[in-house]
């Protein structure tokens, strides 16, 4: 029906304005990090009960990628920040 995400740039907006990508905790490995690291990055996802950080894109607003920390049980939102503040790329080549 409705829920609001407090975009740090735009203020509270309904979820319809956003696109969810998924786990923001995973770090893109270095190109030579090896099969296991890449396999984990591309395919393995935790499905935590409780606090979870996710990438959300404010698609119909400021078009910034955000990190939304929310509770997967209660849907309570603990914080929303710009994704650029916590880059998801590990060591670059």
């Amino acid at each position: 029906m409705a829920s609001l995400i407090a975009c740090p740039h735009c203020g509270p907006r309904p979820k319809e304005e956003f696109t969810v990508r998924g786990d923001a905790g995973i770090i893109r490995p270095a190109p030579d990090a090896g099969e296991d690291a890449w396999y984990a990055y591309v395919y393995l996802r935790d499905n935590p009960r409780g606090r979870h950080k996710e990438h959300w894109h404010h698609t119909s607003g400021c078009r910034r990628w955000l990190i939304v920390e929310r509770d997967t049980v209660t849907h309570a939102i603990y914080g929303v920040s710009d994704a650029a503040g916590a880059p998801s790329q590990g060591e670059t080549a």
Partner: peptide
């Protein structure tokens, strides 16, 4: 078109903000 734009923005903002 829309997906690529979102993807580019993700790479620029979340992966390589530098």
């Amino acid at each position: 078109a829309a997906g690529v734009m979102n993807h580019l923005e993700f790479c620029a903002q979340a992966l390589w903000p530098d």
